[in-house]
Design a protein around this nucleic acid. Structure first.
Lengths: 240, 240
DNA sequence: GCAAAAGTGTTGGCCTTACACCCATGG
DNA sequence: CCATGGGTGTAAGGCCAACACTTTTGC
């Protein structure tokens, strides 16, 4: 029988996604910040930002706090991903991790670099890290792969893509978010119709100026409509 | 800053669903077993089966163990639901609960009644309990409502309905599972076509005998095909 | 005028819904 | 031969993928 007060450590970690241009192809891809471990186990390796749960803070609050401390980020969208608790996932003591995932805008992540301790925070291409086991500490590669799956599934039936964008955006920018997350091109015409049909965005009336073509209309997200499905056509190569 | 070794207690609880005929209407509805609390806080109230996490057991193993100890059930399908950890969810000490949910067959739950300690286990109609706040200890009403949502969503895109049924079943029995979970009637003809089209079941070749009408074909679940969507038509009153 | 992206129109095909209809068995 | 559910057929309508086409701007 287990003891009433166990020696299990409870930690909260967060998978942070941002969309950035890939330095090689220039296409938008998913990146995430990782923190270099400064103690054993896995000292020197990269790991998800996080830390032990505070005794008087809720789980999501703990995720926000540790994220702010390590990376300076204050995300809008934050959702619990999964609780990982296998006995052998940490070599020393028993650690159960409640993992959250979050989306941040590309323009938010810059602040992380000017912080003290920023030398132990670095951004990585999410799919590159997720497909190379052993690069991350603990079971964090598994966790990252799981978070990527969840993001790619959820973006098709929930308007979370807005969290990658500022308050006002064009439909082309929104489409670029979907294309970057799903790694496939989408038909602009059909994308427009589906997004407008589900009512998750509304036109602001303004237009983006300064382009060298027809000025696109600006939209904002419509909080009233929050549930709608987007159908994604068959997989294709994304042209670079 | 939180201490490295916190005084937070980690518990694992499980929401168990079974389909049973409603005593009033006779229609299949969702039921779940609850355990009477025998100590403070909430002594005497009903709560989800569960208990503290063992130091050398995985989370799912803990769910299976506590479920077996309290109810004698050994479920086939077991999935993590969510981790609940608000500071004030338990009046005394801080408790973080990793909650699982599971489906059991109607013929499995009988064994629970012959066990020692069975007088502290009772089955309740899930929707009745979920819609009456204050009947359960802690935040277990919230947890149950969340589990119900998840079950009703997941049954439309995953073949979990099989977990309610024995190895061989007719399509009418499978349809009755969907109707019981979703609380609406489904067109038998269209249901048959959708289920067969997604390939999650395969005919055994046998037929159910002893009915007072045409003998229906028997099917078994096809483990190869595990992902398929079922479209549910508009909401309707279910006739009793 | 030309390039480029915004935005609209249209067609064919697939899937679902609703419901009619036939099949097989017990009584 | 009737009642009952099993099982098949089918037509109308909706939705989507594909792609042609028009619009509006900068240069």
């Amino acid at each position: 029988m287990p003891s009433d007060r166990s020696a299990v450590t409870l930690a909260v970690s967060t998978v942070v996604f941002a969309l950035r241009p890939d330095p090689a192809t220039g296409a938008l891809t998913l990146w995430l910040p990782l923190v270099r471990r400064i103690r054993e186990p896995y000292e020197g390796m990269w790991a998800l930002p996080g830390g032990p749960l505070g005794e008087d803070e809720d789980l999501a609050a703990s995720a926000r706090r540790t994220l702010d401390v390590t990376t300076g980020l204050q995300p809008h969208y934050l959702e619990q991903l999964y609780c990982f608790g296998d006995v052998d996932r940490s070599p020393s003591q028993r650690v159960v991790s409640v993992v959250y995932w979050t989306l941040v805008r590309a323009d938010e992540d810059a602040s992380a670099l000017e912080r003290p301790g920023a030398e132990n925070v670095e951004w990585f291409a999410a799919d590159d890290v997720a497909t190379h086991p052993g690069r991350l500490a603990f079971d964090h590669t598994t966790i990252l792969a799981y978070a990527l799956d969840r993001l790619r599934a959820k973006i098709t039936y929930s308007p979370i893509a807005h969290a990658f964008l500022p308050a006002e955006f064009t439909l082309a920018e929104l489409r670029a978010v979907y294309e970057g997350v799903l790694r496939r091109p989408l038909d602009p015409a059909n994308f427009r119709r589906q997004i407008l049909a589900q009512g998750t965005v509304e036109p602001t009336g303004g237009h983006r100026e300064g382009t060298r073509h027809r000025p696109p209309a600006l939209y904002r997200s419509n909080p009233a409509r929050s549930r709608a499905t987007l159908t994604i056509p068959a997989d294709q190569e994304i042209p670079s």
